[in-house]
Design a protein around this nucleic acid. Structure first.
Lengths: 326, 326
DNA sequence: AACATTACCGCAAACGTTTGCAGTGCATAT
DNA sequence: ATATGCACTGCAAACGTTTGCGGTAATGTT
């Protein structure tokens, strides 16, 4: 079966294609009688405009692209989810792409966005992304690129991140406040800016307060578990987890040893807020909300799309959510 | 800045648009010299074909749509993730839409898919979906619709689901095997078909083996936790959790009492496989894999897209994944 | 009666591709 | 010299829209 087109509606109604087109858009030139006639016809024939043709004429796809490492992830799923509802609210569609943290796939994804002539791109770069040139090429074509969460070092591009320093210092200060003496601090991939920031801020505060701090880097929850297994022997009285991924590994190890929180050891994490609630007592965490981040990123997209040329480099505040683990 | 088009390449190279087009597609008619010239030019000018224009000419969008209740969900995120990688492997893009279990949004989403002239649609319907007519209209336009997980009652459409009865009986049989005497069984919303199936199968097996079974229904993890708090006093020696959501509530209660698995009590769940790995020991679960479901759905899509007209109505097997909790 | 205005409607071009068909120039064969 | 074939390349139409511009008939104004 073929799709209904303006031509088909035109032939059936005996009116011209232009009249049909205008009638469907409620153009003032067209009489009410004609309008209702065409609308009725379009309804019964399930006419839906072909966005490909519309784009060709108007140069305006109502399509955003978003690239994340993975959809099935504590944090990004919520980012994507709110990006999707915001898009729909504004009559945009969303093309969601996963990089799998592979810079080659990332480039292929950018190409895809280009080929689809997206109106804008939300991007979270991989740790291996050495150059953001492919992104900038898109930007030169007047399609705004909003980096979020994992953003490039370079300046001059839109960046929306969680306030890494603030989050790390909130966590660190709670550890100080609780008068911990020796903390095991676990971070993710050291190549990432987000890791660097959190690591630097956290360890600096530990240092100034004379708290012994064992810093380690884990690429995944398994490594985090193994590291915890090992360093628990050195009897830290608190563990700091840079992300949810780290937290899950740490908790495996903690449960394995039947340690009771917060008496045997304190645990604190930076998290989106879901994982910490799975344990008893709930883990005390610094909230970095994916929803808020997505909302801010979307807002940036819309304002730059409307002609505003200022560069957005913003952070979403984080806050302490007390569980019973510290 | 404007996008590079065939016309631009044509003007710069002095060759015709058709020659440029053919050169880029490695057409045998075109000389090697011309091909390399054009390819080089296209590279430096970052030419990317405009898929909108391509579609208009070829009638073939390489785009799939997928509608789920929510992206940020234990199960659907993995379904979507694998759907996305399969699509990319096959040179398709994916447009992901959320219904929020709202039938009106569902209809709007179908419209969107239609407007984008998707080549195929993966759909998970809402509990309130009373008619699948909008889906069938798409199907009449030769775009395959593959229902998954939550599928309509009607026959004659493609359906890929998890085997609820099998999953419930696998769990029940393990409980029998482990010679448990008294089990607390927690289920979700009793209105859902999925609940009915799992409940019926499970309790029936308990009955025939003379195992005492306390069945309760919880709408969320909080209710599950409270129910567990309460019924733990009756000293069950095993707990069955119908879903991940239930499991998280149960585990809160179990951790609260410092119960050790599997000695103090056994726990088993039906799950996608992520949540059970967060605990130590890992929870024994019956796997209902979102990845497998997505793979099967994708396979169905590709075969019906290639002309095969048989109706797919399939179930994905579930399997026991032994943790240390039983 | 002549003119101006209004209310509708249609023509045709353009967007960026793809592709059947029709060349063109050249070398080889007769 | 003419014919035949080959290796390339270009013309032009079509896909489904949108929209500036022009046209026609009817109504209103003087």
């Amino acid at each position: 079966m073929n799709n209904t087109t303006l031509k088909k509606l035109s032939e059936i109604s005996g009116l011209s294609i232009s009249t049909v087109s205008r009638a469907l858009k409620n153009h003032p030139d067209i009489s009410e009688k004609t309008k209702s006639l065409i609308n009725e016809l379009a309804d019964t024939l399930d006419y839906e405009p072909n966005v490909n043709a519309v784009y060709l004429r108007t140069k305006h796809t109502r399509l955003f692209g978003v690239i994340v490492p993975s959809i099935s992830n504590f944090f990004y799923d919520s980012v994507i989810a709110t990006l999707e509802v915001e898009s729909r609210k504004n009559n945009y569609s969303l093309m969601i792409l996963q990089s799998g943290d592979d810079p080659n796939i990332e480039i292929a994804n950018i190409k895809l966005c280009h080929q689809n002539r997206v109106s804008g791109l939300f991007a979270c770069i991989t740790p291996e992304t050495k150059s953001i040139e492919p992104f900038q090429k898109l930007a030169e074509l007047d399609v705004p690129v909003i980096f979020f969460d994992k953003v490039p070092d370079s300046s001059g591009c839109h960046k929306i991140c969680v306030a890494d320093e603030q989050a790390a210092s909130l966590a660190a200060n709670l550890i100080v406040e609780k008068q911990k003496k020796k903390v095991l601090a676990l971070f993710e991939n050291s190549k990432l800016l987000i890791t660097k920031k959190r690591h630097e801020t956290f360890t600096e505060i530990m240092r100034t307060h004379g708290i012994e701090c064992i810093s380690e880097f884990a690429l995944n929850h398994y490594e985090a578990e193994k590291l915890t297994d090992a360093f628990l022997n050195e009897k830290p009285d608190a563990i700091f987890c840079m992300t949810d991924e780290i937290l899950t590994g740490v908790m495996k190890s903690v449960q394995k040893r039947h340690l009771q929180l917060p008496d045997d050891i304190g645990v604190i994490a930076i998290s989106n807020g879901f994982i910490p609630t799975l344990y008893y007592p709930q883990i005390t965490y610094i909230e970095t909300s994916g929803e808020k981040l997505a909302e801010l990123a979307f807002q940036s997209m819309m304002t730059t799309l409307s002609g505003n040329t200022t560069i957005h480099d913003e952070m979403i505040d984080s806050r302490l959510v007390a569980g019973g683990s510290m």
